[in-house]
Design a protein around this nucleic acid. Structure first.
Lengths: 361, 361
DNA sequence: CTGAAAGCGCTTACAG
DNA sequence: CTGAAAGCGCTTACAG
């Protein structure tokens, strides 16, 4: 870097403009409360020096950092990106997002919470509701709004905006069962000690529960590989599933990415989707909408999660009494039947299929 | 929030432990320089109070924020996510990434640079090399390392880690020409006043230049819709292209997402890829690798861009003289021929095709 | 190994 | 409409 003079401070600006630093501070914070003429002189000095206010000093003094911390599982999933964008847009330019990612490690989440808290954020938004004890403790004692998203904890640490992953899994199973399928599978990732997608697991559990409620077996609800699930995960899982149960009729993947990978694996093997096996995803990723055939999915409005969270935080920041702001918001999910799930072949209607002995082919 | 006592400060800890704040500060910064017994007392007090150091005060005092600002076009493109992860991993837990996104608006980039600079980052990493005048001025006067990534400016504002998008476009065209295609198209987005993907445009220009060098027409190098390009963009662009030039033999899309969308549009229309039209993407996104058939692409190691940038910054932070750190690093690109680009049908070999009159069908 | 003093660059809270 | 004083919660730079 060039040997330039020191970075100008507010003091430098005030001297050049012949005013006190308080006046400079006012011009920058609310120009209307300073006389027209003084304002012009200050602005000219700011311009001439290329002065950029130091927000770390400002934050220490005002006790407002205008940071909002956001903890996500990954930076490479466009759905979480949509949530981040929705949050950023709703919060507006006055707030800066501090984003961290955990890669589904709870220990990493703990480290991040500690690091972000040191930066004195105005609020912390975190994906999920399963945390280490230390994380829970820090979050509880943080004295700032904490929002758990993409889930529906009962009760939340503080606030929650999301949906029930268990119910989402149930809805997925019911869709497939309603179509007349009986030999139904699902796959997600393994819940390990360090890496675990607890929300995907909840979906799988809801799925298995619905299967059992319908008198069907949940033996094909598989946990393979580790989070985050990818296209590749879906392909590998589908391959494993097909080896194990060549007669499978329908499969639910914990994410559209995984569902797409599964579909590609079917294509490679010459297995028709949905003709021979129906595929249902989760999340309503763009890939599912644009793929040919488009993938049926359990839709989540990722951007709305961010927007609602932003709205909630703004209400809280504006001093709306905590009691007036909902503790938990359910944005719900909906099954979007596109072209990868169709009625089971052997069944003229779903009801018949459920009690028939159909082999599904 | 519960009516809890005020957040404990270092002063509170020091009183409880019966030491000065300096001793507390030392225990937290470098425990080894404090006596075993004192250290234990301080740590106990920290634990008891649930003390979390205030980094904004610490930053003001030490003049080190340990922030690195990162400006990306979008948060929903997994390639930029890979770059961010590579950067974060290389920088390590001592540094916190402050990520902003522009949606390809130069004005938004300017706003972000100003906002991030106020936070006193240790360095600023920004995708691209086209900036507004004000942005260039701020970046030049920032007195911190500035790294432009995903491009190859001549010269960089300060440092650059990336590749030539123009050359990447050229390589794409040469691949297609080498395969014997003659009726060749490409598509990207429109360069508007406010929204513009300048890097994608550079690829298109390199592509067009190579076409002309080979004596081919660049009339089918199209700009449609606006950035960021998506699966949907590719589908729409392909549809437009097919209406315009039903006899097109090969097409280059400025991103794999767009290429995938184009392929899906072909599938919808019953047009065989690569049998009737070859498709080449850019970026080596996971979608291209996992799609069936896998999509040929111009590969960029997105994660490596982040890692190299992190390495470079660490060197600079550790006081390596600026002169010892390369100003510009080219990570290069490579054409990865997968299954969506094959030799032109009419040509028994590429050389013959280039001089033949083949209609490509 | 430990501490008292000064100061980082702003804003708050008063005064006028 | 403008300013002087105090202080935000740490760390730097000295001293001992």
């Amino acid at each position: 870097m060039p040997a330039t003079p020191k970075k100008p401070t507010m003091r430098d600006v005030s001297r050049l403009a012949g005013v006190s630093t308080m006046t400079v501070s006012r011009v920058l914070a609310d120009p209307s409360i300073v006389s027209q003429e003084t304002r012009a002189r200050v602005l000219a000095a700011v311009e001439q020096l290329g002065y950029v206010p130091d927000l770390v000093a400002g934050s220490l003094s005002s006790r407002r950092t205008n940071f909002v911390g956001l903890i996500l599982p990954t930076l490479t999933n466009s759905n979480f990106g949509d949530t981040a964008q929705g949050l950023a847009e709703t919060l507006g330019p006055a707030y800066q997002l501090l984003i961290g990612y955990t890669l589904y490690h709870l220990a990493e989440e703990e480290r991040l919470v500690r690091a972000l808290l040191s930066r004195r954020p105005e609020a912390l938004v975190v994906a999920g509701s399963i945390h280490t004890g230390a994380t829970r403790r820090m979050l509880t004692n943080a004295r700032i709004p904490v929002v758990e998203i993409w889930d529906r904890p009962e009760p939340p640490l503080d606030r929650a905006v999301g949906f029930s992953n268990f119910e989402a899994g149930r809805a997925a199973a019911r869709h497939l069962i309603g179509l007349g399928h009986r030999r139904i599978a699902a796959f997600g990732s393994v819940v390990g000690e360090d890496v675990a997608d607890h929300r995907g697991e909840a979906r799988l559990q809801g799925f298995a529960a619905a299967l059992k409620d319908a008198g069907l077996s949940d033996a094909l609800v598989l946990r393979l590989g580790h989070a985050p699930v990818s296209y590749e995960h879906g392909a590998a899982a589908m391959a494993a599933l097909l080896d194990r149960a060549p007669d499978v009729e329908a499969v639910f993947a914990v994410s559209d990415a995984s569902a797409f990978g599964a579909m590609m694996e079917c294509r490679r093997r010459g297995i028709d989707v949905p003709g021979r096996v129906a595929v249902l995803g989760f999340g309503d990723f763009e890939i599912g909408r644009q793929s040919e055939p488009p993938i049926s999915t359990v839709r989540v409005d990722a951007k709305a999660i961010g927007e609602r969270t932003g709205r909630l935080l703004l209400d809280l920041f504006e001093g709306k009494s905590g009691a007036a702001v909902p503790v938990s918001q359910d944005i719900g999910v909906s099954v979007v039947a596109r072209r990868t799930t169709i009625e089971a072949k052997a069944a003229p209607c779903a009801a018949a299929a459920r009690q028939g002995d159909g082999d599904g082919r």
